[in-house]
Design a protein around this nucleic acid. Structure first.
Lengths: 344, 344
DNA sequence: CTGAAAGCGCTTACAG
DNA sequence: CTGAAAGCGCTTACAG
């Protein structure tokens, strides 16, 4: 069992001062080559590693970034985390993960922890509850403490911090145009989230792209469930293509098609705003709007870096472009699932 | 903008020594009530928070646990992380997340980092590549440095550390018995992983539970693909129920049933060793073996605690029991997906 | 070229 | 009851 060796112990073994050892290991030009070599040799022999806690205390930083995730079971966030982690690795930063479980209270707790100087910066996607209640004091508290904050994905909030997310309206504009470029004209949209901001944006993107073609919209209302509205679109209106603004509407559409014996993609093309992995595992696979979660994670960390360096508050909204509207595929290719993505 | 206040600054403002302030804030009985109150009042006013880095240096610990995850896009691991995080919160520990992406090299890098004293303990599920090459030196290095290690999920390796995982053989034994209890007799098994340890265990569990009933096994071989073997089981052998040892065989089975117009669950019952969320989103939904990832995460962190306290190496195999063989449901219930799990 | 000293922010045994 | 001192492990300006 090797126990960790310290600078002091090394210096004793070498009969030099602690400062000399430290400088030698940092390739300081003050140190003679001979001494430097002796020091390094012994350090390697004992596998010396500087104690990161001590280094951080000395440098008044923590070397860590706090990442607050609302719901890790959502593969979107899992993949954002993956992007953040990869990027952090390049900068020798550690990622401390906090999961709010979409709870405002938990989010407050976390932010409270973070104000104590646990991390050098915070990347956060606020919880649903936070958005609903529009309570952002705990986030302002972070800023008060001069902790750089980047808001990712859920960027529709009024906080003077960097923001990284996707352009909801454009994504649906593009998806609609994608259908139209294929010569389709009876294009509908289904939404279980038409009442919230992002739902409205997506529907609006669809409408803009339809120009003066007739629009078909399915959403739950007092006159019927979302499912009955989708049935109407598919059966009565006979739309050829359907955009789904969210996971729920996409799944319902799949089930309706299954029940009504409507073949996907032959009779009906679907593009859903759903996660890549789910889209591909459905039978049949569905096209989806790629949100590039991993790239989003990378950008989020990048934003923080810049912010932290300049120490000015940049109200920057970084938008991920969304090139890949994926074509429908009914074929299952176990070993090349991801390639479906490029088949347009 | 509040800037962080230190003990020293507080002590200056109060005209007492740093030690007095520190003791007062820790409710030391050495301090007079009057002083204690003054100190606490000012501390609250300035929102004093001890610098965690300094505290950790003083206490020679880091307050953090390193968690190594092979693939965060796998919702199983995402949910394990969720369990770990929840448990860590209870113990005021921070979770530093590392993602190996199933790469041995990356895993080595991570372990190298961890040996420098970044964390108080490590929870790791080794990468596929690591398992394949059976290279565990980097893990032994952690133990050499006296860092408590817990291996979770992928526990089939020879390392003197706590291990937390599921009992693969029993899970399939139970699943088979579950079918038999329903009066089914023509029960088959499909596997794309029959050549690896866990695959063998699962198949063996199935075989033991079948007693002397005829067994039907589909696996890829020189005489045909897995898909053709599954077709044979479903069409020629007409099995009534099929166990799938892995995700790939489950998806292929679904597609075969779809092509052959075999109704699930009417004509064919399936239990797959697949993740809850995917199982439920498939059309139709599939039954699955619940691996209790979140509970596993909780146990993993618990194991570390014990290990770390005793500082002896316990070769303990902690097994999660698997009660929930879930019944097949073709119905989609957007708002109560999770309840499917309890419908047996 | 080397080393003593100060200091990052805290805790705690010890002296008064 | 209070405070000076040592120390966690490191870095770095400064003196020699």
């Amino acid at each position: 069992m090797k126990s960790k060796i310290t600078l002091k112990e090394l210096s004793k073994l070498l009969n030099v001062s602690v400062s000399t050892v430290s400088k030698a290991l940092h390739d300081s030009p003050e140190i003679s080559p001979k001494t430097a070599e002796r020091v390094k040799e012994l350090a390697k022999l004992h596998n010396y590693r500087p104690n990161p806690v001590a280094v951080n205390l000395k440098k008044s930083k923590t070397g860590t970034i706090g990442v607050v995730i609302p719901n890790i079971s959502n593969s979107f966030f899992a993949r954002v985390l993956s992007g953040i982690e990869a990027q952090a690795q390049l900068h020798d930063q550690q990622i401390i993960t906090y999961i709010s479980n979409e709870s405002l209270d938990r989010e407050k707790q976390i932010c409270d922890l973070l104000t104590s100087g646990m991390v050098d910066g915070v990347l956060i996607a606020v919880s649903e509850e936070t958005q609903k209640k529009a309570e952002y004091d705990h986030l302002f508290a972070l800023l008060d403490y001069d902790i750089p904050v980047v808001v990712y994905d859920r960027i529709n909030l009024n906080l003077p911090a960097d923001k990284v997310g996707v352009d909801d309206e454009k994504s649906f504009y593009d998806a609609t145009k994608f259908f139209r470029a294929k010569g389709l004209e009876r294009i509908g949209i289904a939404s279980a989230i038409h009442h919230v901001g992002i739902g409205k944006l997506r529907i609006s993107g669809y409408q803009k792209a339809m120009d003066n073609l007739p629009v078909f919209t399915a959403r739950s209302s007092s006159e019927g469930t979302l499912k009955s509205k989708i049935e109407k679109l598919l059966v009565t209106e006979k739309v050829e293509a359907l955009l789904c603004t969210d996971f729920e509407s996409a799944i319902i559409t799949t089930r309706v098609a299954y029940e009504q014996n409507i073949k996907i993609p032959e009779d009906l093309k679907i593009i859903g705003y759903i996660n890549k992995d789910i889209a591909e595992y459905l039978t049949p696979s569905l096209s989806y709007i790629e949100q590039h979660p991993s790239e989003l994670g990378v950008k989020a960390l990048g934003a923080k870096k810049k912010y932290s360096q300049s120490l000015t508050i940049i109200k920057k909204l970084s938008v991920i472009k969304q090139p890949s509207c994926v074509c429908i595929s009914t074929e299952y290719k176990p070993k090349s699932l991801t390639t479906i993505c490029s088949v347009v």
